[in-house]
Design a protein around this nucleic acid. Structure first.
Lengths: 330, 330
DNA sequence: CGCCAAAATGACAGCGCTGTCAATTCATTG
DNA sequence: CAATGAATTGACAGCGCTGTCATTTTGGCG
């Protein structure tokens, strides 16, 4: 280790400086830092990992979800990783593939990552969670359906957000409101529907079962659900779809049917995906704190346990009002 | 190493088996494999890395591009990584940030990745390329504007694709065709425009400069460009936008102006992003072989040099015909 | 000035693997 | 059956770092 020689100290001292350990004289510390800079030295992660049996790697597992969501979780996660000198490795998974669990095991075996981020809907996958627990690999689920024992989880309050959106619609003067559900595989779907129901009930409004349709979080399912809802003799003055894609589908079918948004029909989405800003009229939606979730997840993974008391981090969402919702024209 | 004991051989032999080296008796190989399986053993990457000074890590650098594109490159890249026992680490970068180069240097210093994938527009960033060359880190640029010396590059033929799309429009009977350019930072923009020009010239068609507008690859810029193009006394019967987002913008503004797509105006996009399938009518567009690019990039990085002769891998694109284009109604 | 605890530093082994090279075993062949 | 070269196998060092613990230096104080 030439840095040691250059600075006239032992390897060990260099190591101490690189790790910001205390009990190094300020003068020595400076000397070493200078030498390191001069020699353009950075410690070798592999060696460090071997010695400390850490890998300085966090893995993020995700299953073909919406690109925008995933990318943003990644962005937040990498930001936190950088702060800690860690790096993020990504593992796109396909739950339906039969070698699915094998890939995870491989990854765990090879890499010995120091922590794992579980993006939805993987965070609700029993097999995965069981494997992780069994191996003792620390993980943080993002927006899981239920608590994971005493493991901290990162989420937003889907129920509350859906309630707020519904209240927004009600506040605009809507009383006849339809709802397009999300993919039942994602636990958020149920929570959003629940928020909708709560707000309707709180306002003393009846939910017309003909105006509640299943959806799949896709544009196509939005078109189909919208078609059903809007084909009856009576139709709602507003439709709240479980995510932006299906909301866009609703808007499209509404247009086909000669309904103008928002004049004849208000449409609300959820997620604030790129799409929400790329349709006309632009979608009123809920912005999920996706980046923050990624960021917080990594922080949780890497912070000393002591600091953490909560087991559930509720990050703030925001209601984004755009042109797709307005007071009903009567 | 208990596997060695269990199998009654030396560590070295185990190592040989794990690396599929030749000159191990078939019988021994089996014995070791069994022992490994029984003990659920997987070699430790850090130790291996330390001994071989490889990291078994590939990094992908990208700059806030479209999520769909990035995710797909990742998907392809991870697939190849798995085949080679490698893993993919991601580094979202922000070229405009001033610590931009620093983050790259940090990553290179820490991780000693074995190779780097440079997604556009990073692949055309002189600073980055220079740094990589200087450090001798192997990299593969995806869809760069120019060749990188004798480094193999992965790309699709944007010029040809744009030509095909233009020909598709012309084949439909259009002669008055507008064009919305892409973000000038992305070199693909220029290539697509070139393809458009070539096809127009080949068909003996004139390009009306009033119908060619700058764009930025965004929905908004598509709306603005479309607005300008469609506001003149004469207007084209088709508009070819440089990507799906701006094409969606064009469709929207067309709708605002009472123009029906495709009856009054055909609109074509480029990329086959999720959006293309989430608008109505759905966009005729060019499918980029994005996953394949990621896959090929990693393969190029990891294959023995010998096998590689070409310095430029042109992957196939596809023209996806959907409802947004049709013969002009005259 | 000497003594002592505390602070700073260093020596050394070892993390789990692979490269080198020597040692052993094996199958042939005259 | 001994000799021979090829095929297998193993011993050992070392990759670059950190943990442990011993050693040295420092500063404070009687």
């Amino acid at each position: 280790m030439d840095v040691a020689r250059q600075a006239g100290v032992s390897m060990k001292t260099v190591s101490r400086v690189m790790n910001n350990e205390p009990s190094v004289a300020e003068k020595t510390r400076e000397k070493v830092k200078q030498a390191a800079k001069a020699l353009n030295y950075t410690p070798n992660l592999a060696a460090r990992g071997l010695a400390t049996s850490k890998s300085f790697l966090i893995a993020m597992l995700y299953d073909i979800p919406s690109p925008g969501y995933t990318i943003n979780v990644q962005k937040g996660a990498t930001k936190a990783c950088r702060e800690f000198g860690y790096h993020l490795i990504v593992e796109p998974l396909d739950v339906s593939a039969d070698d699915f669990m094998v890939s995870i095991e491989n990854m765990l075996g090879h890499l010995r990552v120091d922590g794992i981020i579980l993006a939805p809907p993987l965070c609700d996958n029993g097999d995965v969670v069981r494997l992780l627990n069994q191996r003792g690999t620390p993980y943080v689920p993002i927006a899981p359906s239920a608590n994971h024992g005493d493991i901290p989880i990162v989420k937003m309050d889907d129920v509350k957000a859906a309630r707020e959106m519904t209240e927004h619609l009600i506040g605009l003067g809507h009383t006849d409101i339809g709802f397009v559900k999300g993919n039942p595989q994602h636990s958020a779907s149920a929570r959003r529907f629940q928020g909708f129901r709560e707000a309707m009930r709180a306002a003393g409004l009846r939910i017309n079962p003909d105006w509640v349709e299943d959806g799949l979080f896709t544009f196509k399912s939005g078109v189909e659900a919208g078609d059903k809802i809007l084909s009856g003799a009576f139709r709602p003055s507003a439709i709240f779809a479980c995510n932006d894609d299906s909301a866009a589908g609703v808007m499209t079918i509404a247009g086909q049917k000669g309904l103008r948004v928002p004049d004849d029909l208000s449409v609300a989405g959820f997620d604030d995906s790129p799409l929400a800003d790329s349709v006309w009229p632009r979608l009123t939606t809920i912005r999920q704190p996706v980046q923050e979730m990624g960021y917080t997840a990594v922080k949780l993974l890497l912070s000393k346990d002591a600091e953490i008391i909560e087991t559930s981090f509720n990050l703030d969402h925001a209601l984004i009002t755009r042109e797709s919702t307005a007071a009903p024209k009567q």
